[in-house]
Design a protein around this nucleic acid. Structure first.
Lengths: 317, 317
DNA sequence: CTGAAAGCGCTAACAG
DNA sequence: CTGTTAGCGCTTTCAG
């Protein structure tokens, strides 16, 4: 069996309570005693049993995060931020991928709830009622989703959408097609709002490469000179579809995206896209969660986005 | 406070031990009793406290995985496999990103060790001694790494390398440059072995887009007609560098990669690359870990890789 | 400032 | 097949 608090107590010639205090409430122990305890603990390689600790404190020191699609680089980037900040706070993080399925998402949260202090829900596809219901189970922070009474950090894509439209209009475009993402996605909603009737809206597509492929085919029939994709992954699919059809980007069609994933800069033509501060969002989400756990208020934090102009947009012919 | 086993026991008119058994050792309880217990538990929304359970069983029902770089799509894909299989087994998974740093990697494993039943180490950069040392802390399964006495699942890149070389030679190439990855990486070693003096080896580069950029510059000086990149991310960097220099791929230089990440098929020209069964690897790793926990033997599993020919390779001029 | 003692919620012998 | 009884390792009153 591993080394326990009792082993430390014995060797440091103090009671277990003193060891416990030395470790988790340093102020309550005389400096000299605490130092001795700490030394012994280090020497023995003592690591408190978290199960025992959380059994009594009710806190686990863990937090969870669920994302809809781990293979979309957008999310690993958020995860990094979460892990960074959680690590600083001494917390470990459970992750889950819901594969864009609301039912799975809810079940994952329920499962996690039992063993974390709180969870971060990223780009949730759950209906509002369900989110509220889950809030009763465990403290929740939303990323890119707004639900009254629930903390959230937002990478505002409406202003981003404005920038895209302004950019396109300054280039001389007049006829836009918006290739929509999941109907349940807040970001999709925001983009729709930002577009506000200024674009022809094409139904909901899978927010990935394949969805972009499919959407591009439909968009070609609209006669639009710019295809605004819900996200970069879709934009990449659009690029691939158009290339195969021999349609020139950006000469014939401009294709801006959203997210600024790593590959946006690498593909050809490189994507004009709206950059999102994903890592920051992850960090802020953890901060909000921490605040919540300390009895703080529900908060909402807006993070700025900005247009990155690359090679996939240009003046129409 | 949440509903406990005692609440269930009281309402079901049985002792707590019966409830416990009904839940975790169904065979030991009369059918009728068990059914009643289960009904009450469901009615009350009872969820066993995992901390309490693991305090006594010594098992957490969790497992951990650490990867060197979450933003390399190769790893999220492995993670998916891990999560899938772990989920089937009712286990949750902790993840960590070591950011290619061995010291961080070791510390992460140590931290995790306390709260998981075992950990999967993916493409570890740790030295052999350290891995052995960690094995004493928690059951370990390696992915793409070989250490005697430790279970591992391998996506064999030596045979993949052979295929690349054969493909290139059949195209007429005679002079190859290998753009190496991390010196500590097993995959890099394997690729080196597979190349066995048949390629000019260029030092160690960061296994990412930037590393590819850097490597391409160096490779250009060798006069090689094919730049074999350590991985797809690097190959993407190479492509970008060469495009900026006006060097035609594949007409002037062929650029094969390894991994077959999602973007290998999307970039232009699409990458010829060695496909790796990443999701399978994640699943198998969990299986090996489960076997280990059940007192099974250390095992080694080799997964096949295969060359996917796309557009980044062609006959030299 | 420190120690003794009482559990947190659950499982695992050991009896019946 | 079921109930009783002891703790798992730790934190936290409550007394000194």
């Amino acid at each position: 069996m591993a080394v326990t608090i009792r082993d430390v107590a014995r060797q440091a010639q103090v009671s277990v309570s003193t060891v416990s205090r030395a470790l988790s409430a340093p102020g309550l122990v005389k400096d000299a005693t605490r130092q001795r305890v700490l030394d012994v603990a280090a020497g023995l390689g003592y690591r408190p049993n978290r199960a025992a600790r959380s059994l009594i404190t009710g806190r686990t020191g863990n937090l969870g995060i669920v994302v809809p699609d781990l293979t979309n680089p957008f999310f690993p980037s958020v995860l990094r931020g979460v892990q960074t900040r959680a690590g600083e706070a001494g917390a470990s993080v459970f992750f889950c991928d819901s594969r864009e399925d609301p039912a799975t998402e809810a079940e994952l949260v329920r499962t996690m709830a039992a063993q974390v202090d709180g969870v971060v829900l990223c780009a949730s596809l759950l209906c509002e009622e369900m989110i509220v219901e889950l809030t009763a189970l465990t403290p929740l922070v939303l990323i890119n989703r707004v639900v009254p009474g629930v903390s959230s950090v937002l990478m505002d894509s409406a202003s981003g959408t404005d920038q895209v439209v302004a950019h396109l209009e300054s280039l001389g475009h007049r006829h836009f097609a918006y290739l929509g993402g999941p109907a349940a996605a807040w970001s999709n909603d925001r983009r729709l709002q930002g577009l506000a009737g200024r674009a022809e809206v094409l139904g909901c597509f899978d927010p990935n490469f394949g969805g972009g492929h499919e959407a591009a085919g439909r968009a070609l029939e609209t006669g639009a000179t710019a295809f605004i994709a819900y996200n970069d992954l879709m934009a990449l699919g659009v690029l691939s579809f158009l290339a195969a059809r021999g349609v020139q980007v950006p000469e014939q069609i401009s294709v801006p995206g959203f997210d600024d994933i790593l590959y946006a800069a690498m593909c050809s033509p490189a994507l004009t896209t709206v950059h999102m501060p994903t890592e920051d969002a992850g960090e802020v989400a953890v901060d909000l969660l921490a605040a919540l756990l300390d009895g703080g208020p529900v908060e909402r934090r807006d993070l700025p986005t900005n247009l990155v102009v690359r090679a996939s947009t240009a003046a129409p012919i």
